[in-house]
Design a protein around this nucleic acid. Structure first.
Lengths: 340, 340
DNA sequence: TACAAAATCGAAAACGTTTTCGGTAAAATC
DNA sequence: GATTTTACCGAAAACGTTTTCGATTTTGTA
């Protein structure tokens, strides 16, 4: 019951393993007759090349690695889906690992993938990652790697991102345009680039509109949870009764805040307007529905793989890979948590 | 800049490749001195075994395949997380593919995984799957496979499931206990086992409570979407004004229904009570929060891998694998979409 | 000192594939 | 008919590891 090998085919046909291999791969130096013979027998015997042997010989596995901070997450699972669907089209499989927003784990997972000798790597950085030697090490070894969403600007590899600053600016501007006079910001952890950029976009929008930037209106959270949103909502109500608009770093926290405001009979958007970020599915289901920035996860996954694929091909042809930065469009989705 | 091999270590140490290999793997027939020497050099040279070669030689890749119907899905992504976290502990990596609820695709993906020679397979069946030859073929080849959540009862492989019928019974009983007199059911597609079981649980609860089972109160949907929930809500209002309770096959559809009822000023739970299924995160955030059945996704993923791992070990020892059915506990989560 | 037992090592085969390179036979050219 | 060209095939090496089995050396025993 052993799987059939090239040798099996060669022996029953009375030819060499070499010829069988060449016939199956369409080499020109094998006659039409034997080629047909080989292909037919391979078909009937249901021959499948031993992937392990092919890997060893060709030094590639047609497998890529993917590291994300968190799997159970609407945005990231959309990215995963985009990556897998695109990879499949090109004959690549995807191994997924999770960093749990931990730098140490991220390093370990990267190591695992390198030891498994994946052909390339896709990664979205953990919040805790401030040192990037583990990334540059991989680049130095010539292994293609592309970052998406949560990136590091200093690293000279390809990246697929959105313009977080611009998107945050748009979101804040929308609050201003709909009449908000005092706008707070719930921002994410200090380290990640997109948390920084969203904050900067918020700040710039205020200043461009001649509004004062008040640091005490910026609430920083490390965990992006529903509960954090509830807590910050309570905090706002006790500390800053004059706030009439909030730009929240991520939908989940915004939804927590909405839930708490609902509980306290604060009227949204009349008393306080809210804009989120990401456009989770949930955002359209909540009452009031959440105005937010649409972040194209599926598209981002697709693009990330496409870029990686280009680099894989370039590497095969021994060409240099020129890092590319791909910026995807975001869009403000107006719903009922802001005024008209 | 080639990666270092056993040969490299052997040559610089003036010993054979064999001894180096044995030293690193702790064979007893190598002296403490050379063992120490080898290990030290391997360490400083940062030697990593070539996974491709190891795979070929040992005929295993320490990799398993996972096929799920849909990645962007709260329950399934929880399962994925459970599987990956458990697999990692045992040194296994996970390749994920998606069947998109299509039988044809499921078959193709299974084929892909077999050609990649993964050590084992974890699968949750697509809705469209009615024929199981692709599954039994794999079992006949002696490759360990375990199903979870969406399973086929006739197949004699290990499974990790919940008691859908019991859970649905509990959900329906809760509607009855809280005073509902006429209870509708939004059920999923006809084929999958858990859709059938949930329906049967619903029906049995009615009959056990001397209520009439009315087939016209069972609404069948193929796509489990938010929009379907909205549509069915409208249908109920126009076709059956006497309905005062609904047991919905899955939270997403229930939330769609709630949204529509809210829009039409139907009071939940006073006018109509609703129970969902799965306990998506979203269910606690919506207004009113949704009473539902908690389905332990993470736990299910963990258990599925654990069982697969047992079978992988059994296979290595050439022992027979005895299929096992693992049933996980569900729990009714009472919230505000049902009365007290 | 002689011999048995234990400790230590390495040659070689094997896993299945890909690819280079040389060789033979057939066809084409003169 | 001799020579060149083309078509077709296969031997062999290589990828890096694991493991069997025999060989050698060292230690222990009488």
């Amino acid at each position: 019951m052993k799987p059939v090998t090239l040798k099996d085919i060669a022996e029953t046909l009375g030819i060499s393993v070499t010829t069988v291999s060449k016939a199956l791969k369409g080499y020109p130096d094998v006659s039409k007759k034997t080629r047909a013979l080989v292909k037919e027998l391979a078909e009937t015997l249901n021959y499948k090349p031993n992937a392990f042997a092919v890997n060893l010989r060709t030094e590639e596995s047609k497998t890529i690695g993917l590291i994300i901070p968190e799997i159970v997450h609407h945005f990231f699972s959309s990215v995963i889906k985009g990556i897998i669907s695109q990879a499949e089209k090109k004959g690549y499989l995807v191994i997924i690992l999770q960093s749990n927003e931990s730098y140490a784990l991220e390093k370990k997972q990267l190591d695992l993938l390198m030891n498994k000798r994946v052909d390339g790597i896709l990664i979205s950085l953990a919040n805790g990652t401030a040192d990037f030697k583990h990334i540059t090490d991989i680049m130095d070894q010539g292994k293609p790697i592309v970052m998406f969403d949560k990136i590091a600007k200093i690293i000279k590899c390809s990246k697929v991102i959105i313009d977080d600053r611009k998107a945050a600016y748009t979101a804040t501007q929308h609050l201003i345009d709909t009449g908000c006079k005092r706008i707070a910001h719930f921002r994410g952890p200090l380290l990640p680039q997109n948390s920084i950029d969203r904050f900067l976009g918020y700040k710039k929008a205020l200043l461009d509109n001649n509004m004062t930037y008040d640091p005490s209106l910026v609430y920083i959270f490390d965990d992006m949870t529903f509960e954090v949103g509830e807590m910050f909502a309570r905090k706002i109500l006790s500390e800053h009764t004059d706030v009439d608009g909030i730009f929240v770093n991520t939908d989940l926290v915004a939804i927590g805040a909405i839930t708490e405001f609902n509980r306290q009979d604060i009227k949204i958007p009349e008393d306080i307007s809210i804009v989120g970020f990401s456009n989770w599915f949930m955002s359209s289901a909540i009452t009031p529905s959440l105005t937010t920035i649409n972040q194209p996860g599926f598209e981002m996954g697709k693009m990330a793989f496409k870029q990686l694929y280009k680099e894989l091909k370039a590497k095969k042809k021994k060409k240099d890979i020129v890092p590319k930065i791909i910026e995807l469009e975001t869009k403000l989705v107006k719903r009922n948590s802001t005024r008209f």
